[in-house]
């Protein structure tokens, strides 16, 4: 299984903090994004936002990053701390 987590405005737009995916459903971060977009129109619109960032196991990665079973994948808007 792959754990997917969402933060901040993205979490609120999706009304979802986390979910799980079967590991064989997706190979890369972009594949996961596509799978999530296919869920419905709301999710498709949300994931069409090009500024969304992604992380795998707490490291920022780009869409081509390979994902494996047991990984934690996060999607979130650009950060605004400090």
């Amino acid at each position: 299984m792959i754990k997917i987590v969402f933060f901040a405005a993205l979490r609120e737009q999706l009304d979802c903090a986390e979910l799980s995916l079967a590991a064989d459903d997706a190979k890369t971060v972009d594949d996961i994004k596509q799978l999530l977009s296919d869920k419905n129109e709301q999710w498709q619109q949300t994931f069409s936002n090009a500024s969304l960032l992604s992380a795998v196991n707490h490291d920022m990665v780009d869409g081509s990053h390979l994902v494996k079973s047991g990984d934690e994948v996060a999607f979130f808007p650009p950060v605004t701390g400090g």
């Binding site: 933060f7 901040a8 405005a9 609120e12 992380a55 920022m60 650009p78 950060v79 605004t80 701390g81």
Partner: peptide
Amino acid sequence: YLKVKAPFWKKEQITDDGQTSENWLDA
């Protein structure tokens, strides 16, 4: 680097003409 790499997000509660609302800050 903290400003652009550390995963923090600010949501502000604002008052405009007596109306209160909240919104996530844009980077």
